[in-house]
């Protein structure tokens, strides 16, 4: 029920509607819940409504944080010279 899909806005239509594209599928969605929206924005689509805009900057930052946690973990493991406890168990 709460599932929502990120999709790209390809046109702004009349009456608070827009068209979004996802992997070749185009769909009309209501933009009544957004303050502003432009062609090219990625929005989270839920039951036919654009619920929120996605932040590209924040998405990059999250991936960066994940990568850093992973790099740190690998360095710690290298320092220990053997697989961390529990690995492969």
């Amino acid at each position: 029920m709460c599932l929502a899909i990120p999709a790209r806005v390809v046109s702004i239509d009349k009456d608070d509607m827009a068209t979004v594209a996802l992997e070749g599928i185009r769909k009309p969605v209501s933009t009544a819940l957004l303050e502003e929206v432009a062609v090219g924005d990625y929005v989270l689509v839920h039951v036919g409504y654009a619920l929120h805009k996605l932040s590209e900057e924040e998405a990059e930052r999250t991936l960066q944080l994940m990568a850093e946690a992973g790099v740190l973990a690998e360095e710690l493991e290298d320092m220990a010279g053997e697989p961390a406890a529990g690995a492969g168990a």
């Binding site: 990120p6 990625y42 990568a67 946690a69 992973g70 973990a73 690995a87």
Partner: peptide, 19 residues
């Protein structure tokens, strides 16, 4: 699919699992 595929990356999952 942008904003989906990169958050399902198996290699990164293994690294997070290690952390």
């Amino acid at each position: 699919m942008k904003y989906i595929k990169e958050f399902r990356d198996g290699k990164l999952a293994q690294k997070l699992a290690l952390a």
